[in-house]
Design a binder for these strands. Structure first.
Length: 546
RNA sequence: AGGGGUAUAGCCAAGUUGGUAAGGCAACGGAUUUUGAUUCCGUCAUUGCGUAGGUUCGAGUCCUGCUACCCCUGCCA
């Protein structure tokens, strides 16, 4: 793995090391997902960032499930997240659950109460909302704000003991109702939730809020740099407030640093929308290849190595930016180029008959692979070629097949197109003659301007290829996400590939000449046909309209 | 009585004490080629770093004013 590209987070960390705030050997970061859904490509960047600190400086990186809200979390999600992170190629030093600190957090809450820094509020959610003020107006203090320390402690214990219903009481930090930072206007730190937690069961009926729990989680685990996304910048003062007011953590506090999330052009990464698509059956699950969930792009054929390279090159900064798809595609191609064997496959076939090739005969051609080896490819009178490789009326600069033009069949002969016919079903058939003297590898001096791929019709393996149009992110105001979704965005075609492809293993990837990289669909593979998902098209500098 | 952020090429993005604008994507040339792919070479910010001023021998980097965009009023994370 190459040296990670520099970014402002590394600069901050290096300054901290230089200033003696932290020792390099003790650097600890964490990736703290809430187990409430499947991970998507945006998480890949967050994972990359935290783990890259360990790659660059040593130290540790932990995986921690931020499971403080049992109403939304499930063990199933935690397990899927574990699988996805492993798939990405990362292995954590420790696996933690925030829920295992509930006891500690409860004690710390009593500490804050004892210090007069937290109080029980009896107001309803609506009352709290109304009295919080607005962006330009200060909030008004709760009538319960000045309860005695003793009463607060008793009430908090009663909350924990299940004496109240959800929503009846809440523990609030006593900070500043007129702070310009809304997060500091006496934020709620504990709420009552009579829910069964996927880890702690029914042990608790009060659960800590993120803003209270997260700094404690980080501090307990000796995190040195708590890396999170930009929307938490406003929460940092509260993060620090919590730790500054707990005797255990006055020293050696973790430091929160925020970065901009990854946004890819037209990629839908909102958990809410993805869930909607799954629930309404518009996609066939969280791993639908049109989705940008990690499982979706995995099924599409994008590799972990490509994703990591992509994250690295895209960089880490604080400005909200949108990366074009071409940038992701480039790294996918770069990786696939190295690992995918090449083969010929005709995605949208038309027939080609070589009229001067003896009927009933065929031959086995040796075609060179990239690694210097050769593979056997049958050749004969009847072939399939790509529909787009023949034009009745060729556009300007077209190099491929049209009547009278010569073209090389990859690894075989130069042929000349003599005519075409269309049968009653609309099926196109092209006729040509070949020049036996031009066999590849025999040193023939004859050149053809174009080169096209082909498969021998009688021995080709039938495959089903599946391309898809993308699901678009509906961010335009007034436009519902569902309006922009094309339910029929998967297009399946019957295609033909050379026999080598038929021997492919599940999850194998192939580069189909001039058509792109295809991956065997590991989920939908069925029957006698192999099913391929289109992953990334090759670059093409030729445009018909030019 | 709002607060917190961000602004460097078409798109990302380096640039840490002020010293004369990295890298990647895209694009465009050219070489090789049994894929219009790959690979390989080359080009791509010169009164320029959102804008208007200021300090300085010298500013993307420091100062002041302005503008644009993003985030914040969950008992979500």
């Amino acid at each position: 793995m190459s040296e990670p590209k520099s970014n402002f987070i590394y600069s901050e960390i290096e300054n901290d090391i230089k200033n003696g705030v932290y020792e390099q050997a003790k650097l600890i970061t964490r990736f703290p997902p809430e187990p409430n859904g499947y991970l998507h490509i945006g998480h890949a960047k967050a994972i990359y960032i935290s783990f890259s600190v360990r790659e660059k400086y040593g130290g540790q990186t932990n995986l921690r499930f931020d499971d403080t809200n049992p109403a939304k979390e499930e063990q199933e999600f935690a397990e899927s997240q574990i699988e996805d992170i492993k798939w990405l190629g990362y292995d954590w030093d420790n696996l933690f659950y925030a829920s295992s600190y509930f006891g500690k957090m409860y004690e710390y809450a009593h500490e804050l109460i004892a210090k007069g820094l937290a109080y029980i509020d009896d107001q309803s959610p609506d009352e709290i909302k109304l009295t919080r003020g607005s962006l330009t107006k200060p909030g008004v203090p709760s009538p319960y704000r000045d309860r005695s320390i003793e009463e607060n402690a008793e009430l908090f214990t009663a909350m924990k003991d299940g004496k109240f219903k959800a929503g009846e009481r809440v523990l609030r930090a006593k900070i500043d109702m007129s702070s310009p930072n809304m997060n500091m206007r006496d934020p709620v730190m504990y709420r009552i939730l009579h829910e069964t937690h996927h880890m702690t069961g029914d042990e608790w009926c009060i659960y800590p809020m993120y803003d209270y729990a997260h700094p404690i989680e980080d501090a307990i685990e000796n995190i040195t740099h708590s890396l999170c996304s930009l929307e938490y910048e406003d929460h940092r003062p509260l993060y620090e407030w919590v730790l500054n007011n707990l005797d255990d953590y006055k020293e050696n506090q973790p430091r929160q640093i925020e970065f901009a999330r990854l946004a890819i052009e037209n990629a839908l990464t909102s958990k809410r929308y993805i869930k909607m698509l799954v629930d309404q059956g518009i996609v066939d699950g969280w791993d639908d290849p049109r989705l940008f969930t990690l499982r979706g792009i995995r099924r599409r054929g994008i590799t972990p190595a490509a994703l990591r390279r992509f994250c690295e090159e895209v960089g880490v900064a604080k400005s909200n930016s949108i990366v074009p798809r071409a940038q992701l595609d480039y790294f996918v191609r770069e990786d696939l180029q190295k690992i995918s064997p090449k083969a010929m496959a005709v995605i949208e076939p038309i027939r080609l008959v070589i009229e001067n090739y003896p009927e009933g005969e065929h031959e086995i051609l040796k075609i060179a692979n990239d690694d210097g080896t050769e593979r056997d490819v049958p050749f004969g009178r009847e072939l399939y070629i790509e529909a787009e490789d023949f034009e009745i009326e060729p556009p300007p600069k077209y190099r491929r097949l049209y009547i009278g033009n010569e073209v090389r069949l990859i690894g075989a002969y130069i042929i000349k197109c003599t005519g075409y016919s269309i049968d009653e079903n609309g099926g196109m058939s092209v006729q040509a003659v070949y020049d036996p003297e031009t066999k590849s590898g025999t040193g023939s001096a004859k050149k053809a301007k174009g080169t096209i791929h082909w498969v021998h019709a009688p021995s080709a393996v039938a495959i089903t290829t599946r391309g898809f149009t993308d699901l678009y992110n509906a961010s335009a105001p007034g436009e519902g996400i569902l309006d922009k979704i094309n339910k029929d965005s998967i297009i399946e075609k019957t295609s033909y590939a050379e026999p080598a492809v038929g021997a492919t293993e599940p999850s194998g990837r192939w580069q189909f000449l001039r058509k792109g990289f295809y991956v065997l669909d590991s989920k939908l593979s069925s029957g006698e046909n192999l099913v391929f998902n289109m992953t990334v098209s090759l670059k093409s500098s030729w445009k018909p309209e030019a």
